[in-house]
Design a protein around this nucleic acid. Structure first.
Length: 433
DNA sequence: TCTGGGGTCCTAGGACCC
DNA sequence: TCTGGGGTCCTAGGACCC
C-alpha cells in the first residue's frame, strides 16, 4: 500500500475514562481510578435503575464490563458507592475540558465529538508544547488531571481514524492511557485486532455479513479485493476496507462540523399505554418539546417523523413491532402545527396496539430568518401566535419547563412534567458546586 | 436485554417526471 | 392502455455510535 499521497497529520482523540463515574468520584474527594462507584439513573422508565457509568475499579472487581447494565446486575456489596446522575454537571465539566484543549490547539482544530470525547488536530501546534506528540499528549493529560482531577485517555494517529482505533483498542488498556497508530504500524496494530466488532463502525450485523464472505479478522479484510467488498456491502464495504488499512481522507471541517440535520426526542414510556388519548397526550408533549428546541436553535422544520413501538406483549412473531411514518408540512416551529401533524400521522397507522416506545424527529431544517406567513390566516393572528410562543419560551427558561404546561400534560398519561428537569432522560442535578 | 436517549448515515423500493 | 428508460426525490427501515 502506497501511503505517500495520504494525508499525514497529528491527531489526538481524547476521551475521559469512565466520565460520569470519575466526575462523581472527584466531587467526593476520591480518586476516580481507585474507587468502586457506579452512576445509576432511576428515572420512571428505567425499570428499577439503569447504570450509566462504572468506575474502572468497579468494572475490574465486579466484572462489570458492559457499559450499560441494569440495577439487577449490580452486586450487593457495601463497598460499592451508587449515586444518581448529574447530567448538567457532566456537561459543564466537558466544556471545561475542551477549554483546556483549546490552550493546546486553535479553536478551529478542537472538535467535541460527544459528551466525553474530542478530536484535536494537533498538526500545526504540537511542536509548541513538546518534543514528540506523545510528550504533548502526556502534558495535556497532566493538565486535565491537575485542574479537574480527571484522567483522560489519548489515541494518537496520523489521521482521525488511526487516532480513534488507537484510543479504543490500545489507550484504554495502556498504563499511561496512551495509544498510537501510524501508517507504518497498521499491520501490527490494526490487523492483529482479535475482535472485529471492537473496531469503530463494525458491529454485530456487519461482522456477520463479513463472516459470510469468509472474512474473520482485520487482516483478511485488508487483503480482500475492495471492489468485491463494495459490490457485497456497498459504501460500508469501501469504508471498512479503508479502515483496515488505516486510511482516512475525511477533512474534519467538512465532516465533523455540526450540521444539524434533525432534532428530536424519544422515550420509553414508564408502562404500556393502551388508551388513544393517553398516547396522543405524550405525542403532543413530544411535539411541543421538539418545537421548543427548534425555536431555541432558530430553526424551522418541514418534515416530521413519528416512530411507534408496541408493547412487548403486543408483538407478533414475524410481524412488525411498530411503525414509523413521516410527513411533510410548511416550514414551522409552531407547537400547534407540529402536534397536529404528529397526531394525524399516528392515527393514519395505529390500530389499537398497546404502545411502549415513542420517537418524534424533525428534519429538513432551515435557519429561521423571518417569520413565514401563510396565505390563509389573518396576519395579526399569526404574529400574536408567534409572540405567545416567545413568551412561553421566556417563562420556561426563567422558571423551568414545568412552570408553564399545556393542560393536556395534566391529563392521564402525560410525561412532560415528570421529565421536565431531566437531561437526556436522566437527572440533571445541579451544575453548581 | 421484557425497553435510555440523542443522533448520523446508508439503502431498497416506490412515485413521479420527462 | 401485455414491458422504454433514465433521473430524482421520498419513505421506511437498518446499522452504528456515544
Amino acid at each position: 500500500m502506497d501511503y505517500s499521497k495520504e494525508p499525514h497529520g497529528v491527531f489526538f482523540l481524547i476521551d475521559n475514562k469512565s466520565f460520569y463515574a470519575s466526575v462523581e468520584a472527584t466531587m467526593r474527594g476520591l480518586n476516580p481510578l481507585k474507587e468502586l462507584l457506579v452512576v445509576m439513573s432511576e428515572a420512571d422508565n428505567t425499570n428499577g435503575g439503569l447504570v450509566l457509568a462504572t468506575s474502572p475499579m468497579a468494572k475490574k472487581i465486579f466484572h462489570l464490563q458492559a457499559n450499560v447494565s441494569r440495577q439487577r446486575n449490580l452486586p450487593q456489596d457495601p463497598r460499592l458507592i451508587v449515586v444518581p446522575p448529574r447530567m448538567n454537571l457532566y456537561i459543564k465539566r466537558n466544556l471545561q475540558i475542551n477549554n483546556i484543549f483549546r490552550e493546546f490547539a486553535a479553536e478551529c482544530d478542537v472538535w467535541p465529538y460527544s459528551i466525553d470525547e474530542s478530536i484535536i488536530d494537533m498538526t500545526k501546534s504540537w511542536r509548541l508544547f513538546g518534543d514528540s506528540p506523545r510528550a504533548v499528549a502526556r502534558l495535556i493529560q497532566k493538565t486535565v488531571r491537575h485542574r479537574l482531577g480527571l484522567y483522560t485517555t489519548v489515541g494518537i494517529g496520523d489521521n482521525p481514524v488511526q487516532a480513534k482505533i488507537a484510543l479504543d483498542i490500545y489507550a484504554k488498556h495502556d498504563p499511561e492511557l496512551l495509544g498510537e497508530i501510524h501508517y507504518e504500524t497498521v499491520p501490527e496494530k490494526i490487523w492483529t485486532i482479535a475482535n472485529m466488532t471492537d473496531v469503530w463502525s463494525i458491529a454485530k450485523r456487519t461482522e456477520k455479513r463479513l463472516n459470510r464472505l469468509g472474512i474473520h479478522n482485520m487482516r483478511e479484510l485488508a487483503l480482500t479485493n475492495p471492489f468485491y467488498l463494495k459490490q457485497e456491502l456497498g459504501l460500508i464495504g469501501e469504508q471498512i476496507f479503508a479502515i483496515a488499512w488505516g486510511i482516512d481522507r475525511t477533512r474534519l471541517a467538512d465532516n465533523i462540523a455540526p450540521k444539524s440535520h434533525s432534532i428530536g426526542n424519544s422515550q420509553v414510556l414508564p408502562r404500556d399505554y393502551f388508551d388513544k388519548n393517553e398516547i396522543e397526550t405524550v405525542i403532543k408533549e413530544m411535539g411541543q418539546q421538539v418545537a421548543s428546541r427548534l425555536r431555541h436553535h432558530h430553526k424551522q422544520t418541514s418534515c416530521l417523523y413519528l416512530s411507534v413501538t408496541y408493547a412487548y406483549a403486543a408483538r407478533v412473531e414475524g410481524e412488525r413491532g411498530g411503525f414509523s411514518v413521516a410527513g411533510n408540512l410548511n416550514y414551522t416551529d409552531n407547537d400547534q402545527e407540529i402536534s397536529e401533524l404528529l397526531t394525524y400521522l399516528f392515527e393514519s397507522q395505529w390500530q389499537g396496539q398497546p404502545v411502549r416506545n415513542l420517537a418524534v424527529y424533525s428534519s429538513k431544517l432551515i435557519s429561521k430568518t423571518a417569520q413565514q406567513l401563510d396565505f390563509f390566516t389573518p396576519v395579526k393572528q399569526q404574529c400574536q401566535e408567534e409572540d405567545k410562543l416567545a413568551i412561553i419560551d421566556e417563562i420556561r427558561s426563567r422558571y423551568g419547563f414545568q412552570s408553564l404546561v399545556y393542560a393536556n400534560s395534566l391529563l392521564k398519561g402525560g410525561t412532560a412534567i415528570h421529565r421536565a428537569t431531566l437531561v437526556g432522560g436522566h437527572n440533571g442535578g445541579n451544575a453548581y458546586e
